[in-house]
């Protein structure tokens, strides 16, 4: 479903060229659970942003379900992110002073049609991640692990094909991290495609396949 070929990314910083990605080629099949590993500065976040259509490569090809993503305009990319991807970030990025359920519902305001059963769906998703009794809590009243679980519920509200998680356990203690990893494994069993970027091997080991990035290139 994801086909990436010879992706390169070059940043110009004060007239010095930095090659963050130097020709990355790989593909991900539907239903796969892939972990992208690498030290900081290896380019894994940049690769993640490119896969999530948040950033564009300087060179290369990127097909998603046979769509040439690199030719789409900004609005089309927004629509694509809305439908195809569910994002989970290291910093959770929940709206403060907004209830869990409203946070989960947020992606729906950018869909063409606001589903009639939206609230039930959001409740079900929060229930699935074990936050049944926290639906009306504001983000700032929840623990880090709970916040990340709300973020996962949010990533699922649009029933996306791919879950993209960028260091999802980076801000959590090991106990909470284990819970999050467990949720990903369950989602994988339910048939979702999952791509996790992490520098934590214990997290990566739950994936079927590990891609290791070093100096902007895949190892092996």
């Amino acid at each position: 479903m994801i086909n990436i070929k010879d992706i390169r990314k070059t940043y110009m910083k004060t007239s010095v060229e930095t090659n963050v990605l130097r020709g990355v080629t790989f593909s991900v099949q539907r239903g796969e659970y892939v972990a992208i590993m690498g030290a900081s500065g290896s380019g894994k976040s940049t690769l993640m942003n490119i896969i999530g259509c948040l950033d564009k490569p300087t060179n290369g090809q990127f097909e998603l379900d046979n769509i040439n993503v690199l030719q789409l305009d900004d609005d089309a990319l927004s629509a694509l992110r809305n439908k195809k991807f569910g994002f989970v970030f290291q910093q959770f990025f929940l709206l403060e002073r907004t209830s869990s359920i409203d946070n989960v519902l947020l992606p729906l305001i950018y869909t063409d049609k606001y589903p009639a059963d939206a609230t039930q769906r959001a409740r079900k998703l929060l229930d699935d991640v074990g936050l049944k009794d926290r639906t009306e809590y504001h983000a700032n009243e929840l623990s880090g692990g709970q916040q990340q679980r709300v973020a996962i519920a949010r990533s699922l509200i649009n029933d996306p094909d791919i879950i993209l998680a960028d260091e999802p356990t980076g801000n959590l203690d090991s106990e909470n991290a284990a819970e999050i990893v467990e949720i990903f494994s369950r989602l994988h069993k339910e048939g979702r495609t999952i791509i996790v970027v992490t520098h934590d091997r214990t997290v990566a080991e739950h994936a079927q396949r590990i891609l290791e990035l070093k100096d902007g290139q895949l190892k092996g």
Binding site: D74, A79, R81, N82, F93
Partner: peptide, 14 residues
């Protein structure tokens, strides 16, 4: 950050 999140989950510029 909120703008970034909204863009990530599908908000268009407009």
């Amino acid at each position: 950050q909120e703008i970034g999140l909204r863009r990530a989950i599908g908000a268009r510029r407009r």
